[in-house]
Simulated scan of single mutants.
Amino acid sequence: MRRMGYVAAVAVSWIGGAALAEFSQPQLAALTVLTPLAQEQLDRKNAQALAECMVLAAEAEEVSRIAAFAGMAPSPVIIDLANEIIQRPAVLSCLTEKLS
């Protein structure tokens, strides 16, 4: 597994420096896992917004579980968790706000 500092740096390069104030290190690590999953379904800009909204809608324990896969391929359990999170109303409202 890669070092957390490297993962955070990659995530920040994807989402910009303002994210440092918005996301914790575990959230940044989770973002590096969720973004490629979202990019399989959407274009880069919309996928990034979706991944950010998923991280914000996830509970702390879920963020930690997802973040543990930073630098690795996500397991089917993580993919199932991502599919569960994406269906939450908070994700839809966040995504609507980010893309409007």
Rank of each mutant, 00 (worst) to 15 (best):
E40W: 02
R3V: 11
Q87C: 07
D43W: 11
Q41T: 11
L56A: 14
P36Y: 00
N83M: 04
P26M: 15
N46A: 14
K98S: 14
I78M: 01
L42K: 13
S64D: 13
G71Y: 03
S64H: 12
E97S: 08
Q87S: 05
C53M: 02
P74F: 02
L37R: 02
E59Q: 12
F23H: 11
I66M: 07
M72V: 09
E97K: 11
L92A: 13
F69C: 07
A58H: 05
Q39I: 01
S24E: 14
S24P: 15
A47H: 07
W14D: 07
N46R: 15
E84H: 09
F69A: 13
A58W: 04
Q87V: 03
A57T: 07
K98R: 15
V12D: 09
A68M: 08
W14P: 00
V10S: 14
S93W: 03
C53V: 00
L92V: 06
P74I: 07
A29G: 13
G16I: 06
L81E: 07
C94P: 04
R88L: 12
A29P: 06
W14M: 10
G71P: 01
A38R: 00
Q39H: 03
R3I: 13
A57Y: 00
Q25D: 15
P36W: 07
I86A: 09
F69L: 10
D43T: 04
E97I: 08
V33R: 00
E59R: 15
A19W: 12
P89V: 04
A49G: 09
L92G: 10
K98Y: 05
